[in-house]
């Protein structure tokens, strides 16, 4: 939960009718996110930790905080497995943050 999350440098995202479509140039994979997942995706900016992203989600959505935190963690881990999100124990450099 203390890791910082940033969008991968070879990933492009377009929001269409409220849903995010993420395209990974390297794997040629197109991912479709629903509204909640798109909200979390928007929070991934290289400056927030997963815990901080979870906190924002707890304020935005109704539900048990623990359950939301667990869902956010699982979701971001899934994105990391798909190589569209990178995690770091330290804040990301400016060029990564500005590209998020």
């Amino acid at each position: 939960m203390d890791n910082y999350a940033a969008k991968g440098m070879n990933v492009s995202c377009r929001t269409i009718d409220g849903e995010a479509f993420i395209f990974d140039q390297e794997t040629r994979l197109l991912l479709q996110l629903d509204g909640v997942a798109s909200f979390i995706w928007d929070q991934i900016n290289g400056t927030k930790t997963i815990k901080e992203i979870s906190d924002v989600c707890c304020q935005a959505f109704a539900g048990e905080a623990e359950e939301i935190q667990s869902s956010v963690q699982a979701f971001i881990n899934d994105l990391e497995d798909k190589n569209v999100v990178v995690l770091s124990t330290k804040p990301f450099p400016e060029e990564v943050i500005s590209a998020c």
Partner: peptide, 10 residues
């Protein structure tokens, strides 16, 4: 939170 993989052609 579903993450649907879609083929590039999509």
């Amino acid at each position: 939170m579903p993450v649907n993989n879609i083929q590039l052609s999509a």
